[in-house]
Simulated scan of single mutants.
Amino acid sequence: MSSQPYPEAVDWAFEAEVFQWRGPAPYFFVATPPQVNDFLHAHHSELTYGWGVIPAQVRIGATEVTTSLIPKDGVYLVPLKVALRRPEGIDDGDAVRVGLHVGSHDVSSPCEGTAMTTFVIDAQVAIDLVVGGVTIPPQHSLTAPTLLRSQVLALVYESVRRGDIDKRTGRKILDDICGLRIRLLGDRSMQDHAWQIAAKLNLPNTYQAEYIALTQLQADALVTADDDLALAAQAFVTTASPADILRS
């Protein structure tokens, strides 16, 4: 452990090469350089959520997002979310200049002046969006854990079984949800992250934790109709409302 006192906030700027882990859903990263890595390891107990993952802000070009630094093979990796890569035109192998902030800034809230464009949604929100007949702004994207498929199917089936809707309406809801073009993700990296969050929160299973983990790694905010999930998630990620999804 470092004998140096821990400052309230630290900022770095460094050059790095973008790389990706290929799988069911490619994730893009840069690795922290030695001076950043040394500091993060020395002060991880002050910075981490509890298992080594460190909340942070990352800026490339004119775009800034909140994220979580992930320890791997002795270094920390900075996830580059779609909301960061898309406006800056970042791709695998690019050399980028990274601004990184860790410390006292409230990373559970969106940065001032930074629009939310990528949302993790849960099954009930997906159903509510299609039942409401809304149009998602083209600059916004939706993502969810792969388990959303089964959860949507179960919720719609239960509604039909209770007599709230007929089978034809239920089938239309399922078809319309496909039209939302939700990006479903669930590779090993996200699953490992969800496991750690579930253990931290002492959850009985990992279902809620998958939504939180995916938001940390790939999105700007979580939108959920589950009050318990929203409450648990607030310690880890930004939460938003369906109105934020629809706001141009």
Rank of each mutant, 00 (worst) to 15 (best):
L153D: 14
H101L: 14
V160S: 07
C111N: 07
L155H: 15
T67P: 02
L100F: 08
P137F: 11
A83Q: 05
G133Q: 12
E88R: 06
L77T: 03
A95M: 08
V131E: 15
L84F: 02
A126I: 02
A154M: 11
S141Q: 13
R161A: 15
I121A: 01
T67I: 03
L77K: 07
P137C: 09
K72C: 08
A115N: 07
I121D: 01
V75T: 11
G113R: 05
G163D: 06
V75F: 08
T67G: 04
G113I: 04
L69Q: 01
D122H: 02
E112G: 07
S141M: 09
T143E: 12
P87S: 05
M116C: 13
A154P: 03
T135M: 10
I121Q: 02
I127Q: 02
L69A: 01
E112R: 09
T143H: 05
H105T: 10
P138A: 14
G133A: 01
V131K: 15
V160Y: 09
E112M: 07
V130L: 09
P137W: 05
I165T: 04
G133R: 08
D164G: 09
A144I: 03
Q139C: 09
G89L: 08
R149T: 14
D92Q: 13
S150R: 15
V78K: 01
K81D: 02
T118G: 07
L153T: 13
T66Q: 08
Y157C: 08
V98E: 03
T117M: 12
H105V: 07
T135C: 06
P145S: 01
I165W: 01
L129G: 08
V96S: 04
M116F: 04
Q124L: 08
I90Q: 06
L100V: 06
I165M: 13
L148H: 00
H105N: 06
S108G: 11
D128N: 13
K81L: 03
V152W: 04
G93P: 11
G113A: 05
I70P: 00
Y76I: 05
V107H: 09
K81N: 01
P137Q: 05
V78P: 02
P79A: 00
V120S: 02
D106R: 12
V75L: 10
E88I: 04
L155E: 14
I136N: 02
Y157W: 10
E88V: 06
